[in-house]
Simulated scan of single mutants.
Amino acid sequence: MAIPHACAIRRLSFLSLQVGMRVRREIELGAKMKGAYLALAVVAGVVVSGCASTKIQPLTRTSFSVSTMAAPACGQAGAAKVANRVAAVEVIKRGGDRFFFKAASSDYRIIEDSLIVQMVDKGDPEYSESFSAREELGPKWQEIVAKGTPLTCSG
């Protein structure tokens, strides 16, 4: 499930870039920036910074891939943060708690993060080195799981 569509993110990024370039031009020319431009720049920045879309692809009963694309305002670190949180939420939804990443890749040109997640049980050799999904999400993990896939890189 991809929320919102990647094209919408690119469109919002383009709009934000256009507004940012206009604001910069106004400042460089020494003109006073009008309140409308400032408001539009702030709104565009807030909307863009809240955009991340994620796809989860089941691979086996105990593994899946997570692909996250984030708005430029999130940056690569924001995309990785969303991907990690989505992985933890998905592990809990599948009835597990511990997991590790079998593979990870990033594309800095489009701010995308892809992970292959392997769930583990007690007794598995990787158990002691694995992450706890609940610890990854923090003390409010139940609320986060109930909300589902995170849509922002800020939370």
Rank of each mutant, 00 (worst) to 15 (best):
F131V: 00
G96F: 14
M33I: 15
R22L: 14
I116D: 09
K140Y: 06
I111S: 05
V48N: 12
A2L: 15
I116Y: 03
P150G: 09
Y127M: 05
A6T: 13
R94I: 07
A104I: 08
E143A: 15
V46D: 12
E135A: 12
V117H: 00
V91L: 04
F14W: 13
L137V: 05
L17S: 12
R94G: 02
S49M: 05
W141Q: 07
L151C: 04
S65L: 02
I27D: 03
G148I: 10
A133I: 02
R61I: 07
R85W: 00
S105P: 00
P72Q: 09
S53G: 11
I92M: 01
L12K: 06
V120H: 06
E136P: 00
M69Y: 08
Q57H: 08
S106D: 10
P4V: 10
K32P: 06
S128V: 12
M119Y: 02
Q57A: 08
G78A: 06
K55E: 15
Q118F: 00
V145Y: 09
T152N: 11
A83P: 02
L40S: 10
V120T: 09
G45N: 13
S67L: 06
K32E: 12
R24L: 13
T68Y: 02
A104S: 15
P58L: 08
G30V: 10
I110Y: 06
A6K: 11
G45R: 08
E129Y: 08
V48I: 00
C51E: 11
I144A: 12
S106I: 06
V145L: 09
F99N: 01
E143C: 04
R11P: 00
R61H: 11
A83Y: 04
I56L: 12
